[in-house]
Design a protein around this nucleic acid. Sequence first.
DNA 1: TTGTATGCGTTATCAT
DNA 2: ATGATAACGCATACAA
Lengths: 372, 372
Amino acid sequence: MNPSIYANDTGLFVVKNCNFITQSFNKMKFEAITIKDIAKALGLSNSTVSRAIRDSYQISAETKQRVLSYAKEHNYRPNPIALSLKEKRSRSIGVLVSEIANSFFSQAIDGIESVAQEKGYNVIIAQSKEDILRENSSLDYLASRSVDGIILSVSSETEDFSHIQGLYDRGMHMVSFDRIVNFDKIHKVKTDNFQASYDATTHFIKNGYKEIACISNAPFLSISQERLEGYKSALKAHKIKIEDRLIQFCAHGGLIYKEVETAMNTLMRSKKKPNAILACSDKITTNIVRYCQQTKIAIPQEVALVGFSNLVLTDLLVPSLSIVMQPAYEMGRVAAELLIHNIENKNVVKQFENINMPAILHQRASSAKKDA
Amino acid sequence: MNPSIYANDTGLFVVKNCNFITQSFNKMKFEAITIKDIAKALGLSNSTVSRAIRDSYQISAETKQRVLSYAKEHNYRPNPIALSLKEKRSRSIGVLVSEIANSFFSQAIDGIESVAQEKGYNVIIAQSKEDILRENSSLDYLASRSVDGIILSVSSETEDFSHIQGLYDRGMHMVSFDRIVNFDKIHKVKTDNFQASYDATTHFIKNGYKEIACISNAPFLSISQERLEGYKSALKAHKIKIEDRLIQFCAHGGLIYKEVETAMNTLMRSKKKPNAILACSDKITTNIVRYCQQTKIAIPQEVALVGFSNLVLTDLLVPSLSIVMQPAYEMGRVAAELLIHNIENKNVVKQFENINMPAILHQRASSAKKDA
DNA sequence: TTGTATGCGTTATCAT
DNA sequence: ATGATAACGCATACAA
């Protein structure tokens, strides 16, 4: 048994037949202590130790003390996986979003994690990257008994909810979030998009704007529809005609600059240019700013802008930009609280919640028209 | 046993002693199918079914077929928790960062998740919120055998690494990330902060600036020290005197506006004002922009600015702002690949990697001095 | 080719 | 007050 050291195909060194190394590894891979170990060391049975640790009344004070101090000394931690197997619950929740590196979602995950941490749950994250196939496989993966519940925001490709229906049928606890699932039997937590959009549009009208355009996300998304409705209702309420030429869509939510450029060209090169624009996603908002910088269109002198955005910098971007900010962190907290409440109270009658949270309209004084 | 429905303290309705409801719930909580169920249904033993599913060569084609089709029909999924218990590995990795809702970290998590997904691992996230106590308890929590390895970026309060040393001693696989642990026996993935800072400072010098200030993060953080060294070295290489009065620190990395305000006041109200500033974190960068907007200091006419930032909007912010961007997504991928490689190749000799990844300096032409 | 038995770490149900 | 045993779902060494 000569020690042999050679490079494996990853270029790292591998060691075989080498007592020195092997021993050092055996030492290093500290086998975490279990109840059995404690029992053996103290000459007790497994069950006694288990009960002592769980502070059962059946155990004598002396034994309890012995077990506890030994456990503490050896840094005993119950194995959560064994517990999960026994209790048929993992104390972890899955979060599926389209994109983690998106301010809105990362703020929401922040909120979810905060609640989960308070209640002793793990948070397992997955992203669909706006891909329906990846969304479905991630859901399957999470659902195969490794999470107790799922918080999800569907991808922009998701028009068919049968997969989610399937999960519901198998008894998975779920909360739909932001981009809502068009399916009755699921809890929903979302921004009051209608009201937010209504308020933003009204803000324009009150400041004297009447040629108000709206650039929206993919038309079949719940958020798009609600925001468009809010815009239209505000116009209607103020007896301003709704004109289709002033409504533009970006199929990918403005992710691609070209989309926004096309929409803006259509609007700004027409004879009756709008003097105000409502931008219905953060990518659309910032790409409009980019467009205006490039084409030297002055905001708000030539065109005023109110945009949905959760990017922390937007308020610095253009002094006259008013922002509709979704309460992402709070939405995350509410979704997590709702989900965990459901997980832990299985006897609760399932009346599915539909929670609408108000967005915050950060009005910048200068977004008002000078002559208004 | 009268059915009774009453509101619990959460305001939701609870049902007790009600057969109707109980039955409907029993139906709803679809008990996922196990190997045992399949065995019973097909009159086989557990092990035969197990082997058939794992496509063992020992099983006859016919039996295999029977098992597989039954499994598929009933949507059998192996229970990952039982597997974890058996194999003593959970196929999940923990990620501990100070703050999820931070562009750099959320981009990094994006990278980590991408690799994990490819390799069949779960990603469990936790945040320290820059709190050393929360950092330690999160580490304990993750480490108590529920993850196979941990990727961590320490909090700005972490000066003592004994907790991490303890984890190492217990055999936990770890990769230290971005904010590096000052501890030998751990893999490290970080930005080449020295070079980035050196290049940014050189950019100033080449454009004719000589009064270059540096506003840095908490002084004992590895990233702060390296960035400061790069700044100093660049000055030295160009025979510019290093002046302490031009070096300012923000203990909380500019998180609090006041910190940056104080630093900027000190710099800009002195007799020998700097004409260029290197901002060593994204919060510092944007708060300097905010400060300049408020005090009407023109960038770059009065003071030029180069800042570290991973915020997607920074390029829109000030047309003359040059950005040092860390390759967050790639760093996440590398960290995850390194970690998973380590988890899966336990015999590899532990030569701890120290990976330095180059930052990207986005130079904006207009950040050059007009007269240079 | 298939079946039986054991163990992973824990708790619950019996015993004693 | 304590101990023995079974069970959670799976994989595998050993038997047949």
